[in-house]
């Protein structure tokens, strides 16, 4: 899980072009949106692309989005659960 979260942080910084953020500065449980990392709705779409591109995961139910993308940890848990199912 730690390795996956570290990889995710690097991928988020690259995919979302967060040039003033270092991957290691993102907390495992830090909220990704609003008061946390400050991501917006376009970033949310980029995160969906990230999951599809890097992990071959499509989000079937858009209503799951806020739960999956709450933090790096929730993203990692979702990826792990999805990969276990396959």
């Amino acid at each position: 899980m730690e390795k996956l979260m570290a990889a995710l942080k690097a991928q988020i910084v690259e995919q979302l072009n967060l040039q003033e953020v270092k991957p290691e500065e993102i907390g495992d449980d830090q909220p990704l949106f609003k008061e946390g990392l400050g991501l917006d709705s376009i970033d949310a779409l980029e995160l969906i692309v990230l999951l599809q591109q890097n992990y071959n995961i499509r989000i079937a139910n858009p209503e799951q989005g806020p739960e999956i993308f709450r933090s790096v940890r929730t993203m990692a848990e979702f990826i792990t659960a999805h990969q276990t199912k396959q």
């Binding site: 979302l16 970033d43 779409l45 980029e46 692309v49």
Partner: peptide, 9 residues
């Protein structure tokens, strides 16, 4: 490949 939302806007 993957249409980029960040570019689309």
């Amino acid at each position: 490949e993957f249409p980029s939302p960040a570019l689309f806007v």
